[in-house]
């Protein structure tokens, strides 16, 4: 039976692969069907993982094993149910309390975390001696790193209109950003092509056995 089920699974995967690829020709019922199935499966996948990795260990297991010792957990559980009351228009306002706690907590966490990791550490990493490098290309690179970071940050300064001489660093900042977007674009292309190769390999190797 396992053999039949694995063959069925293989044909299911082939069907879904061709259904999605059929969009390259034009939008069609097979693509729409597969798209909705994908949405449904993704939603269920994340719900199951949320249940087992977040709700079970943090709430259900603790309350079922030692209810009295973990009675304080009824507070977040109640807040969670208040969140679900958002479904009904008349009780929507109850959800403001858990949302406020979530937003307030994440604002506090993000404020501290981004100050440390993305602001202070990145600024201090840019404070380098460009001449300390061993090779000429590294010295030039260090200069580019310092100039690029300063000009890039300057580009994001929107409180004053950038014109005349003050537009020069902003323009330089755009060039550095374009180089970075180009690099990201290159990586995205490679990642997508690699996925495409993976799917073709699946069709030619696992399904048709044309390649080994």
């Amino acid at each position: 039976m396992t053999g039949f089920m694995s063959t069925l699974g293989l044909w299911m995967a082939v069907f879904f692969t061709f259904s999605i690829f059929s969009f390259l020709y034009k939008d069609n019922p097979l693509y729409k069907l597969s798209e909705q199935i994908f949405v449904g499966l993704s939603a269920a996948y994340w719900l199951v993982y949320t249940f087992f990795s977040m709700m079970m260990p943090n709430l259900i297991v603790k309350l079922s094993s030692d209810f009295k010792g973990n009675i304080i957990l009824l507070i977040p559980a109640t807040l969670g149910f208040m969140m679900l009351l958002r479904i009904f228009p008349k009780t929507q306002w109850f959800s403001r309390f858990p949302i406020a706690i979530m937003i307030g907590t994440s604002a506090g966490i993000n404020m501290v975390r981004y100050t440390k990791s993305d602001l202070l550490s990145q600024v201090s990493a840019t404070m380098i001696n460009p001449f300390a490098a061993a090779t000429t290309s590294a010295i030039i690179g260090n200069f580019l790193l310092i100039i690029g970071t300063i000009c890039g940050v300057y580009f994001f300064y929107f409180s004053k209109k950038q014109e005349g001489m003050s537009a020069v660093p902003s323009k330089l900042g755009i060039w550095f950003l374009m180089i970075s977007f180009g690099a990201s674009f290159g990586y995205t292309v490679m990642a997508r092509v690699s996925l495409l190769i993976g799917r073709l390999e699946f069709l030619l190797k696992d399904w048709l056995h044309i390649i080994k």
């Binding site: 990145q122 600024v123 030039i140 580019l144 690029g148 890039g152």
Partner: peptide
């Protein structure tokens, strides 16, 4: 990747961090 890209990524990170704060 090491220099111009890092510079731009740093600029984005610093600016985004200021916005988030």
């Amino acid at each position: 990747m090491e220099y111009p890209n890092t510079a731009a990524q740093r600029a984005i990170m610093i600016s985004a961090a200021l916005g988030i704060i």
